[in-house]
Nucleic acid binder design. Structure first.
Lengths: 247, 247
DNA sequence: GGGGAGAGATGCCGC
DNA sequence: GCGGCATTTCTCCCC
């Protein structure tokens, strides 16, 4: 695509805060929290009205380079074509040297929708509050997301014998970090409540052998809990839309 | 844009494993590790040759919905237009119901370049190996990335008195998690080497007050180390390219 | 704004 | 494949 036309199109879109998508052969330098250089290649570049800039290579989920919201962009032609992006407060800078524009698209997007997500760790904690027997027989939850200066506890409760129980939820497989976190909360509760016997329970779909060993070493235990997913499409009437689940 | 033309263009691009970028008014359902619904709105959708699919709203760095590499896509018209994406091994599925295509672009991108990144945690460890005095006077590094069954140790060394020292590097501010990690490694080294006195040092640009308290409580210490950044553009001859840093 | 922790985290490397 | 962990993590929430 003609370079001069492309520069005009990008410049006008930047001025009117439109969304810009273009493909270009380019090389990229970044300086900020770290520093990087990306040699010449073809990429997709997306600039959003909020200043976000994303550079995508032909593979992978993550952008190879990016600038966060609030970044200011300017494209100009000197010896070559340069897209210079600056985020002064964040002290981050990027230079994209463009050899050729493959295409430039601009758009004014209308989108106020927010993602509705289910099956998070918070949903696990909600489920435990409602159906505490998933932890163990006789477990009675007392509070959810109890704040301590050292982090917040997913679920705090008492077992059938009246012992305090700290429950840490993980929506994925639990690892060392989860055990450390549980240990920290148990210590914190022991200290703040002045109680010697506080139990720790890790609730997750899976746990690594190593993490389980560390858990038992510290006298804690693990309960298999799967994060709840129960959107309306699982009802029989919606079977047509998502019938690939087979259930 | 004409819907039939758009469907043909997307279908052909999918068949030839091109990169596809289009904008559409759509609503999106996802089911997999979690479940989500995104109501109607205008989005940018990017499909890569490796099957990666990204859905971007007009703001923010992260895609609001996505499918990972290896996903298979198919667009067809029934009552409405549906882009159905499936990743069978991962048990993940997405349905994008498209009301209108604003534009469709396809491209064959040539890009074998890899990002050259500096200022990572690994670079910090490298620097400590080369100039160990940044840790403390008389520190002698023995090994880097020493493997243990409980994770790998950034730098293992001895202090001027011959005590073993475990160094954990963080390129950002150190938190509880970093202290827990360091404690785990120190315990591990004590056990595996059969030594009672093993020191722990956390090396990072910053540390939170709480983390520092926990560190001292366990008898460890903190050293301020900044991840090294020294690309050639900081030389005087390159001043023109990145002179906005002011230094 | 900093601290703490989750995320449909992703990506990398090692076993 | 799982495990362990860094990430220019990003994002949210709460102090």
């Amino acid at each position: 695509m003609n370079t001069t036309d492309a520069i005009v199109k990008v410049t006008e879109a930047l001025a009117s805060a439109q969304t810009i998508i273009f493909s270009a052969s380019c090389q990229i330098r970044y300086s900020g929290r770290a520093e990087s250089y990306l040699p010449l290649g073809d990429r997709i570049i997306l600039i959003k009205p909020d200043g976000t800039l994303l550079v995508h290579q032909p593979t992978g989920s993550n952008p190879v380079n990016y600038m966060k919201a609030g970044t200011v962009h300017d494209v100009h032609k000197d010896e070559g074509v340069m897209l210079r992006s600056s985020n002064i407060p964040a002290k981050e800078f990027m230079d994209i040297e463009i050899l050729y524009f493959h295409f430039v698209q601009t758009a004014s997007l209308q989108d106020s929708a927010k993602l509705q997500l289910q099956g998070t760790e918070k949903d696990m904690a909600d489920m435990i509050m409602k159906t505490p027997e998933v932890i163990e027989e006789g477990f009675r939850p007392l509070s959810q997301e109890e704040q301590t200066k050292f982090g917040f506890i997913d679920v705090l409760g008492k077992d059938k014998d009246g012992n305090l129980v700290v429950v840490e939820c993980k929506r994925y497989g639990a690892d060392f970090s989860a055990v450390s976190q549980l240990a920290r909360y148990v210590e914190r509760i022991k200290a703040s409540k002045g109680v010697g016997n506080v139990r720790g329970i890790l609730a997750s779909p899976r746990i690594s052998d190593n993490a389980k060993a560390m858990l038992q070493e510290r006298g804690f235990s693990w309960v298999m809990v799967v994060p709840p997913m129960y959107m309306e499409r699982f009802s029989a009437s919606q079977r047509g839309l998502f019938d690939f689940t087979g259930t």
